[in-house]
Design a protein around this nucleic acid. Sequence first.
DNA 1: CTGATTTGCATCAATGTTGTTGCGTGGGAA
DNA 2: TTCCCACGCAACAACATTGATGCAAATCAG
Lengths: 194, 194
Amino acid sequence: MGRPLRADAARSVRAILEAAEQVLAEDPGASMEQIAEQAGVARTTVHRRFANRQALIEALAASAKQQLMESVADAHMDTAPPLVALHRVTANVLRIKSVWRFTLGHPLADSPLTAAIWSEVNAGALAFFARAQREGLLAPDTDLMWARRVYYALVEEAQHGGGADLDPDQVRQNADAMATLVVDTFLRGTGPHG
Amino acid sequence: MGRPLRADAARSVRAILEAAEQVLAEDPGASMEQIAEQAGVARTTVHRRFANRQALIEALAASAKQQLMESVADAHMDTAPPLVALHRVTANVLRIKSVWRFTLGHPLADSPLTAAIWSEVNAGALAFFARAQREGLLAPDTDLMWARRVYYALVEEAQHGGGADLDPDQVRQNADAMATLVVDTFLRGTGPHG
DNA sequence: CTGATTTGCATCAATGTTGTTGCGTGGGAA
DNA sequence: TTCCCACGCAACAACATTGATGCAAATCAG
């Protein structure tokens, strides 16, 4: 990257990325003009900062996945007790996902970089589930691949329902509540316990 | 509808609908030309049969949702024992969904008609889960709305993985196997039983 | 303050998609 | 067999989107 962006330029870039996320979340086929409008910026400015639509989406993916990885790392899944780690990572991921609905919802625009990040996250998840199984949190006969798919599906579903326009505080509380629900359902299902 | 279509015309319509389903499943923004090509038909023929892209998608939705409703009715969810009914409807729906990935995967193009069908299916599902809860299949404290969302998410997930280009026989077997997995996970989760 | 940078705006060409029309041909139906 | 319908093909206009350029005004940084 050449020299650092000027303050206003940096502001534009951030505004465009946020706008793109919001607009594309509602309509993945939205035009650059709609994104520019939402960002409060002329369409030419968008093209100045991002040559292609592709470039814009990749930048989006980069931002989102970096934040996602930080929030995953923050859960310390390799040291904390499995149940605690699972709850914590679920809440963290739900919080991030509520902000990046489009980028994290569509596995599109997987540049080699972001693809690598993804496979790293997936491998980490699988390793975590393996440990959880060894420590008795998952049934011994549970297929780990299927468990991971189920877990992802529940997280995705938990984020679909509520969660539009909330205070940052409410977002955190909601993420916690949904995390409890997700983990509980993931481990015990919906049938009678015991 | 005026007079019945001639044999070749009917064939074209079917070819176009199948092609649209396949092409749109891979790229929801695909052009009419791509659909026509996949159907082995000139683009003008597509426009002859379906005035708009919208009209085509609605026709798609009509076909798919009719088949879906038939497959649901076929499970006799109101009379059969809940566990049996749940397994049967799951297998049936998985079979239909594997064919109509695009149309049933995207709640787009909800004409008033198809929207009505949807809400009917959803209401039926909720009623079924209520009965299942009364008869002890679901825990008494399970939120039925959440249960329905979880069930839908699991069905959707089960259909994502395998299932591309299989014999009709293999499709049925696969649907059965996945239905068992889905129902089991739905009711008991992935944790240790018992 | 002053120079450099960014932006908005107007404009332009290129492109792809949509939807329509007319015509000749080939296959279905009575 | 004969008539008619549906098809493919070519061509067309309308439209939206993309991406680029030049320029004057606003704004940032040293």
